[in-house]
């Protein structure tokens, strides 16, 4: 029976909500299958280590400078702000603990992941997207070379190795940055700073930071590769425009996913 006009108007928001929910669920399901295939091909692909080393250079080595810079200035800002706050209560001695805990537990893994999304994730999407629209992925398939094992799995493996190492680098340089601003510039006590850093950090804090960085590596790599791999299915743009839309979506989606995952992990890991 055809719907009457008022009934149709009432149903419209629900229909829209249903459509959006189905789209989100569909995309989430597709990303999960994509992740599963990428993991599967890590173990079944020949010569994955050679390709992984190349990716490690791009994702890891070439990100060292930017991660070091961001780590240094983040540590300096945290040191500065915390010093001012603590000095109001005469507790400047706790500066080392505050800087170390905030960096190792939260800022290190999250900011490293976000920076790597911008630096490496976006180029993963663009590279795979361009390969898709220029028939290079079709060519791989017809040469019987699985594009997942050739393109995605080495990137996943390289991300899993690079993210924790770069997070550790970010933490270390950040702590040094906190020292620079809180101790060298504002005159805090050097010995107390490092003593608090050492005594406040437990193994649980460090391992939680690494756990986060590993999860973020999977999130960023899979979201970015997925967006590039299926560029040709995009409805908001074809060809070069499709690649640029895919890159934007990948960066935005990865950053949001990193922050959402961070909240979930924090609530699970620091109970």
């Amino acid at each position: 029976m055809p719907q009457s006009v008022p009934e149709k108007t009432i149903m419209q928001p629900f229909a829209f909500l249903g459509k959006v929910s189905l789209n989100i669920l569909g995309e989430a399901g597709a990303i999960c299958i994509f992740l599963f295939e990428a993991i599967l091909h890590v173990f079944s692909s020949l010569g994955i280590f050679t390709k992984t080393i190349k990716e490690l250079y791009f994702i890891g080595v070439r990100s060292i400078t930017v991660i070091s810079l961001i780590g240094l200035f983040t540590g300096m800002v945290v040191g500065l702000q915390t010093y001012y706050a603590l000095s109001k209560f005469g507790s400047e001695g706790f500066l080392g603990a505050a800087v170390a805990l905030s960096l190792v537990r939260e800022l290190g893994p999250v900011l490293t992941a976000i920076m790597l999304t911008g630096r490496a994730g976006s180029s993963m999407t663009a590279e795979i997207g361009v390969m898709r629209i220029s028939e290079q992925i079709d060519a791989l398939e017809l040469m019987d070379i699985n594009p997942m094992s050739y393109l995605v799995s080495p990137k996943l493996l390289a991300s899993l190795i690079s993210f924790p190492i770069l997070t550790a680098l970010f933490d270390l340089i950040g702590i040094a940055g906190g020292y620079l601003s809180g101790v060298a510039l504002l005159g805090g006590n050097s010995g107390v700073y490092f003593h608090r850093v050492c005594t406040s950090l437990s193994w649980e804090d460090i391992s939680a930071g690494f756990t986060k960085s590993i999860v973020f590596a999977v999130v960023v790599c899979i979201v970015c590769c997925f967006q590039g791999y299926f560029t040709h299915f995009r409805k908001d743009g074809k060809g070069a425009e499709g690649v640029s839309q895919a890159t934007t979506t990948a960066v935005v989606m990865s950053c949001v996913m990193v922050l959402v995952t961070d909240y979930i992990l924090t609530s699970l890991l620091f109970q």
Binding site: V130, S134, E135, D138, A139, E141, L142
Partner: peptide
């Protein structure tokens, strides 16, 4: 997969890996 190894394809623009 085996059949694909016995097929060669030349794409419109070559589709060489950049």
């Amino acid at each position: 997969s085996c059949l694909k190894q016995r097929i060669g394809v030349l794409f419109q623009d070559g589709a060489l890996l950049g």
